[in-house]
Nucleic acid binder design. Structure first.
Lengths: 339, 339
DNA sequence: TAATGTTTTGAAACCGGTTACAAGCATTGG
DNA sequence: CCAATGCTTGTAACCGGTTTCAAAACATTA
């Protein structure tokens, strides 16, 4: 509970001025070797560390990065996405000595207000926004406050905002192609929410895959869900009830794929034998689901790292008027739910 | 990009002094109604918000709470634990206008250093530590810096540190009792890591359950794992290979239970029919595992809320010399993996 | 030895708030 | 009418750092 020492007290103990201690602390030149040694000795004896708040005020840099998350609890898949992403961004920030400040909320209104609180008040140097929407109000708060921004997913309506994204079109095309190449023709596509950026792109990829095979996607086999387990489950159950002869399913999330598989199981249909199901994300559970899930992997951890990196670059003045961005490729992970 | 206004400029615009603006901002008395109105008008016209860093320096309160997490990526189950916990603590902090600063790291060494960086430097008013160990070095950093602390899980070796915990003994006893009451006698107990606080408590609960039934636990059926899927899988596979006639399994984590079930499945043994398996945690996946998992639920979200609450209380001066703590009860969630 | 250049050092201002204290002013009572 | 009182307001110090600038100390050269 010994109250923290200030730079002033260290200065007194070392018999020098605050300015000199500050120079030593920051490795600045213009301090004689003897003096430097003396000050360092005092600093280490009292294991003094400077007050970062005061430093922040003086330098107008906080050393903190905000991470704004839509709804923490929205979906399980976003949970897992969030954790992986967090690991990635945390790693680069930690390496560079930056802290991560979280802004997230369950409800829509608190959600905007917590973003605003972060934007104003000058507690962060920059911020990463997860789960952007079209013309997201929160982005405006940060832009208005002049706080550098990186979004995850291309921010529609903000042509100058930096972002990281994954190649949703390519990933969905790859998955669909794979099913087509296996000989499947009737591929039920269980998409995410209508209008969601990723959903749009994945649908596009799904459609593109058919052309080289001289086939047309069946409009009746494209349905919207919400990435959830339930939406996959319902989509399949409903169609089976209507007498659909199942062939293959491409779900826009692993959870929906798991839901679909569960519906098949309940109907006594063997997934990975009679029908194929493919997911999207490669959440950690995918590989010990029964059957282990074939899916399109997103490099979430790397996206986290890259988001952090882009932001730090921007803070160092990189980019200028140019938009910084990076789009990651996806990867097909073949397991046992496809045949 | 309009640079932020300072209290000085607002004062000038309103024709008053900084002190008066400050009084208005903080709702302090001693400002005439007219002046107050005039200042408020200017504040809202320029949508001024005070710089929280400066305020923090002056008040010696940052409005930030640290959340120190062992290894973000350590185990999947901790991931899910982490997310739920985060939701809980975030909610109470958000309500009270506190921010959450994360300190977490993958590797052991960075891990301590990032905790220290948070402890010193005065960037947080208090902190919550997840995944404490015996005589955790990190705790000493916070204690030395005089920063209030709440741990999740009773901190062994720190008799005065506030904490929240779950009734591990009771939960494990309840699970074991349930299996015994179903008529099972040979209950394989797949525990967490040896020496882990929660492991010790759960083993104690397991043992306690046998007495009322006039039975003794079979020492050969108590094995240590690490809460992982693999550890559950291996424990069962190995025993089956040695000709064990399976009866029931109690795993100290849902993941290990899932691993155990997978091993049974591979051996053609029907879980929920021939044998019973029960887990611990009730992670979100438990209910759509196949079969849906019977488990002991921990109220993780509530523990998050409570941890935040205790910390805020402590910051307000509650407790004094007394230790603040709260131990949550567990709940048996019966699904289809037991019979 | 003086003049000059270079390095080391500290005083003071600043970052943007809060607050103790004193001053200014109007009201009230003796 | 003047002093005492209460309310409003501003001045200045402070929180703990960084940085500019000038002075001081020292080294170099003519």
């Amino acid at each position: 509970m010994k109250s923290k020492l200030t730079i002033q007290e260290i200065a007194r103990l070392a018999g020098v001025s605050k300015a000199t201690v500050s120079r030593v602390l920051n490795g600045r030149p213009g301090v004689s070797p003897q003096t430097r040694r003396k000050v360092e000795e005092v600093i280490s004896r009292y294991s003094y560390t400077p007050n970062l708040v005061a430093r922040g005020l003086s330098l107008k840099k906080t050393g903190s990065i905000g991470l704004v998350v839509a709804h923490t609890a929205e979906r399980l898949s976003s949970h897992l996405f969030f954790i992986e992403f967090l690991r990635g961004i945390n790693e680069v920030l930690d390496e560079r000595g930056f802290r991560l400040v979280l802004a997230t909320a369950e409800s829509e209104d608190r959600y905007e207000s917590s973003a605003r609180a972060l934007a104003q008040g000058g507690v962060v140097d920059g911020t990463v926004v997860l789960g952007v929407r079209r013309n997201d109000k929160r982005l405006r708060h940060f832009l208005a406050a002049g706080i550098p921004l990186v979004t995850v997913g291309r921010p529609i309506g903000f042509p100058k905002v930096d972002y990281v994204d994954v190649d949703n079109v390519g990933g969905a095309r790859m998955a669909t192609e794979y099913l087509l190449r296996l000989g499947h023709k009737e591929i039920l596509f269980i998409n995410g929410p209508r209008g969601h950026t990723a959903s749009l792109a994945r649908e596009k990829g799904y459609r593109q895959a058919f052309k080289p095979f001289g086939l047309e996607p069946d409009e009746a086999l494209i349905v919207c869900g919400d990435f959830s387990f339930e939406s996959g489950y319902e989509a399949v159950r409903e169609r089976l009830a209507r007498g659909w002869a199942p062939d293959a399913v491409f779900a826009a999330s692993d959870l929906a794929a798991m839901g679909a598989i569960t519906a098949f199981k309940e109907a006594g249909i063997q997934v990975g034998k009679a029908v194929s199901v493919i997911g999207f994300d490669d959440i950690p559970y995918a590989h010990f689901f029964d059957p282990p899930l074939t899916t399109v992997r997103q490099p979430i951890y790397e996206m986290g790292r890259e988001a952090g990196l882009l932001l730090l670059l921007r803070l160092e003045g990189a980019g200028g008027e140019e938009r910084l961005y990076r789009v990651f490729p996806t990867q097909l992970v073949v397991r046992e739910s496809t045949v």
